Simulated scan of single mutants.
Amino acid sequence: MPVDVESAERFMLANARLLDRHLLAVLLHDAPVTPVLDALRAYRNPDGGFGHALEPDVRAPGSEPAATLHALEVITALGELAHPMVAEAAAWIATIADPDGGVPFVLPAAAAYPHAPWMVPTEGGSQLTFGIAGALWQAGSHEPWLRRATEWCWATLKSPDELSGYLLKFALGFLDQVPEPARAAAVIEDLRPRIEPDGSISVPGGTENERITPLALSPKPGGRSRALFTDDQIQADLDLLEKGQRDDGGWTFDWLGWSPGQSVEWRGLVTLQALETLTAHGRITLPRAV
């Protein structure tokens, strides 16, 4: 069955956050990006970082690495690479990074607020280091911390067998953006044994049958990480994504839903992401009339 874009939009209007509704308007109707940036500022703190449940699984008001990564992803996806919020977020990340450049997964203050069971502090740098470094390289950042973070990423990638599913996903995002294409391509090839025959990777400790699929590992056509996947694997995953639209018009997620607010926010996010991915791969043609 073809994707019902109108039903998806109705789902978003009924359920999604204001930020994601503005992003949908940009995608569907070529709406201006200013309302998106204005909505994003509501999640920003005076220190330059982002919080306030911008990352639905950690709901502390204070700035958090995961929320700040999400903000950077929004800004770079809009093409607003020189926006002041990028430099301000990068400067905040530098204040909470470890001396070796690694970024914590969660800050201790988040424990006082509702959060997913897995959103707890860990020792040393986390997978978010890859994600944030990749987003800042994409933005052309000149933050001095980025060089230390990049060395952390390269050092961590020297032991690919130790990369968990989500760490691998974020690592591929970094390798798609870091300005060393030959080195990145070689490391991507070293990661091939971690990918299962269908192009996915399991998530140990996740929900039953939780997997990270080829499109989640390499969401954009033309990325360096696409070298890991065959056209058949990508097309099969696109078929599954199309079939994933629910009767209410939205898509859903396969990780733990631990609160009603978190669940409805994630459904809005993954619905937006599904429409973006299917559009980027030519599976749907979106309406453009406002």
Rank of each mutant, 00 (worst) to 15 (best):
M1Q: 15
V5H: 04
R10E: 03
F11C: 01
N15F: 13
A16E: 06
R17V: 13
L18G: 07
L18P: 05
L23Y: 08
L24M: 06
L27S: 14
H29E: 10
H29R: 15
D30I: 09
A39P: 01
A42R: 15
A42W: 15
A42Y: 15
N45E: 02
P46G: 00
D47V: 11
F50Q: 02
H52A: 02
A53K: 01
L54G: 01
L54K: 04
L54I: 03
L54A: 03
E55W: 02
D57P: 04
A60K: 09
S63F: 07
A66H: 02
H70C: 14
E73N: 03
E73C: 01
V74D: 07
I75A: 01
E80R: 10
L81H: 11
E88L: 04
W92M: 07
A97N: 04
D98I: 01
D98W: 09
P99I: 10
G102N: 06
G102H: 10
L107C: 00
A109F: 05
A109Q: 07
A111L: 13
A111D: 12
Y113H: 11
M119G: 00
V120I: 02
G125E: 05
S126E: 03
S126N: 02
Q127E: 06
T129K: 12
T129Y: 10
I132T: 06
L136R: 14
W137R: 05
W137P: 07
W137T: 05
H142F: 03
E143I: 06
P144F: 00
W145H: 11
E151I: 13
E151G: 12
W154G: 14
T156H: 15
D161C: 02
D161P: 04
E162I: 03
E162Q: 06
L163V: 12
G165M: 09
K169W: 11
F170E: 05
A171P: 10
L172M: 01
G173I: 10
F174E: 06
D176N: 15
Q177G: 06
P179S: 10
E180C: 09
P181R: 07
R183G: 01
A185S: 15
E189K: 11
D190Y: 09
R192P: 05
R192D: 01
E196Y: 08
P197Q: 00
I201S: 03
S202H: 02
S202F: 03
V203M: 07
V203S: 11
G206M: 11
G206L: 14
E208D: 11
E208H: 13
N209C: 05
E210V: 12
I212V: 05
P214G: 10
A216P: 01
L217T: 03
S218K: 03
K220M: 10
P221N: 12
P221T: 12
P221I: 09
G223D: 15
R224D: 06
D232E: 14
I234F: 15
A236M: 13
D239G: 08
G244T: 07
Q245D: 11
W255G: 02
G257H: 14
S259Q: 11
S259P: 13
W266S: 12
L269D: 00
T271Y: 15
L272H: 14
Q273V: 00
Q273S: 08
A274K: 14
E276K: 13
T279V: 01
T279M: 02
A280K: 15
H281K: 15
R283H: 05
V290M: 07
